[in-house]
């Protein structure tokens, strides 16, 4: 089983979002970076599958050198080697082209990633990569098992779950509860330092979108507190003042 796990290097979920350079760049100052939470689930399941079935895990990031600590963490959690496509990804299409180019070379049985990145929340990279490789893609996958060359998996649908079966190779966008997040142990951290991390240059892609500017939402007004003994007035306020009932 050869598994490719694609990870994003993203601001921590509690990070304060601000912008620099005339609102054209994300302000990285003081921001803690993490492996995308959904990607972390994908990685955890990949490690479990490898323990069960043998094989190898390659971790892939499309990003700049500041992704390396997160890539090393993925290696410490259990990936065998890593590839970083050295660039500041422009958009989903650009990122997908880079992943597809690496995947074509590697002959992977399974390409796992998070259902979406938590910075741009597009949720389209797995579909793009699947189509570019001419193989099926599914998301959001919350349970995954492999028997021989067949994957059985569950996908979240509106108001429930759908259980599917499909032949490998596949591209899957993952989410909880596919596996529990794994914390690297000391041995993992030590061995991760010497595991191979290959840095490659990106494939050229026509520019399909360009950033104009970033903006922050308008600040929220003060919360109107209703005394608990008059709780019922909330309903009339929602009708007459907020006009949402």
């Amino acid at each position: 089983m050869k598994i490719l796990v694609c990870i994003t290097n993203v601001p921590d979920t509690t990070a304060k979002i601000s912008f620099a350079e005339n609102d054209t760049k994300f302000n990285k100052a003081g921001v803690q970076y993490i492996i995308g939470p959904y990607d972390d689930y994908a990685l955890a399941r990949a490690v479990e599958l490898k323990e069960q079935l043998g094989g190898s895990i390659t971790v892939l990031n499309v990003g700049e050198a500041d992704s390396d600590p997160q890539i090393r963490k993925a290696l410490a959690i259990g990936a065998d080697d890593a590839i970083r496509v050295n660039c500041d990804p422009q958009d989903s299409f650009f990122t997908a082209v880079q992943i597809a180019a690496i995947a074509k070379e590697g002959g992977f049985d399974l390409i796992l990633m998070g259902r979406e990145s938590i910075d741009f929340n597009s949720g389209v990279v797995h579909g793009l990569v699947g189509e570019m490789l001419g193989i099926p893609s599914f998301s959001p996958v919350m349970k995954l098992d492999i028997q021989g060359s067949t994957a059985t998996f569950a996908r979240e649908i509106e108001g429930g779950k759908e259980y599917l079966e499909a032949p490998l190779p596949l591209v899957l966008g993952c989410q909880e509860p596919i596996a529990e997040w794994k914390i690297p142990n000391m041995r993992g951290i030590m061995t991760a330092r010497t595991k191979p991390l290959k840095v490659v240059e990106p494939v050229a892609v026509d520019e399909l979108t360009t950033l104009d500017k970033y903006t922050l939402p308008a600040p929220k007004g003060a919360c109107k507190m209703i005394p608990v003994d008059q709780a019922e007035t909330l309903i009339s306020l929602l009708k007459t003042e907020a006009k949402v009932l």
Binding site: D91, V124, L128, G130
Partner: peptide
């Protein structure tokens, strides 16, 4: 998102979500 992505790859289209 899933069908838009696959259609975008087929058509070489720009895709913007959200």
């Amino acid at each position: 998102d899933a069908m838009g992505a696959r259609a975008a790859a087929k058509l070489g289209a720009s895709i913007v979500s959200g």
